[in-house]
Design a protein around this nucleic acid. Sequence first.
RNA 1: GGCGACGUGGCCAAGUGGCAAGGCAGGGGCCUGCAAAGCCCUUAUCCCCGGUUCGAAUCCGGGCGUCGCCUCCA
Length: 500
Amino acid sequence: MSIRLYNTLTRRKEDFEPREPGKVAMYVCGPTVYNHIHIGNGRTFLTFDVIRRYLIWRGFEVRFVQNITDVDDKIINRANEEERPAAEVAEVYTAAFRKAMEDFGIERPTVQPMATAMIEPMIGMVNRLIENGHAYVVDGDVYFSVRSFPEYGKLSGRDIDDLLSGARVDVDSRKQDPLDFALWKAAKPGEPHWTSPWGEGRPGWHLECSVMSEAELGVPFDIHGGGSDLVFPHHENEIAQSEAATGQPFARYWLHGGMLQINAEKMSKSLGNFMLLRDVLAQYPTPVVRLLMLQTHYRSPLDFSSDRLDEAVTAYERILNLVRNLRWVRTAEASGDGALESARTALAAALEEARAKFVSEMDDDFNTAGAIAGVFELGRAANAFLSENQSDLAAVDRESLLEAESLVVELLGVLGIDVPDADDDGEELPPDVVELARQLTGYEGSDSAAAIRALLAARSVARTEKNWAAADAVRDGLLLIGITIEDTPQGPRVNYRPRG
RNA sequence: GGCGACGUGGCCAAGUGGCAAGGCAGGGGCCUGCAAAGCCCUUAUCCCCGGUUCGAAUCCGGGCGUCGCCUCCA
């Protein structure tokens, strides 16, 4: 089975066939660095991070290019507001962007060019366009002539004349056509500028994506991604520039992510109703936010709220508990007669189904919601097996459960939803446990591992004597410092989760 | 006004022709000294009206509603 993806250009799902077998060249529009990125930006970058991770997991070699636009009107405006150089604004928010991506678990691009480092090739592309009659110069500005490119509108499904009748386009008498867009802008005093054949100026928006993708990937490359609000005019203009300049098709598959909304309205910088990614990540763990977002298909709108985040916290805890309980069988007795053969077969089937479902869902236009559902189904099967057979595990059962555990971790890992390492359990217990042991058991050492053993022993004795008050004092005391005790047929299961 | 998307249980959300995934919340039960975790059971005239089909959430037409793009936007 091959991967199918929805191509905005054709408005259909298509079989994905990279231009070169086994290799994928993809480009995703990056940020203009004039502010901290908001959570809607975060969703788009997450979408393409997951697509990239999945392609790699499926065996493709992926070259992933993402620009950083560090020269633009918005940056200049911001610089004027903050009364500092535009380059400084760009630098500050570039660093902030990289930090946010790292915190959000987004893998770094293979290449991440800065627009200001690509001025020469941008001038080159503008020259090509002027030479072949697709662009014209007016007073130091250079405009692309949309009428010179008959296919203009093919991505967004628009007709030039329809657009004009919308009457929401700037009328600039210097342009030959109101829809013509700037390739190069003459610099006003105090603005960043570079020397060009048309005078001092700076590149227009759209240009950097055309130039960088061609330089880093060659055309036509495989996948071009971005938010759906970029379809028009940004991506339409990229196509026009690039195809007019090169005479080649630009990108083969266009993927667009749906908008993130707040109270059923699109969040955007201009509406001012946005939440910054870094503020959300300061309040909720990265895996929770990723899980929440990936439970909706990437092309659908996603309504975001703190209620939904709280739900996702619970859902993620279900995953954590699952993995923790499966890992716990490592240390559990496994010398029983084992599960019934039918139960064993059912678990093995559940494992196979989970993997197969994950692949088929993800192959179908990256249906992360369906893929996650499959992981939860596997979780249920494994939990059921464990709870039915907990007191009578055989070594073979233990292996099956550990296989389930590693599959869950692997599949969620493809989505970048991390589950803490197994080795974290039991280590780094808080020092408070020593003090608690001193109070409740008279423990006199300073080793927290020994302290908790003393506490568990004391509780065990208390329970045997039906001294529930003493037993509960241990459990409640530990709970206060973040350690939970769960009784199982094979003894207490201890779990420490910091900040829990 | 032009173009486009969407409308699935209390909430969120998969599912594009054949018994309606999953998460959250609610109710009941099992397990437990009590818990916790977990398991089991339980909640859907798939917005409305027509049509095509042996069969429609899924395809077609109409209606109502919501959202997006057309201007900077992920």
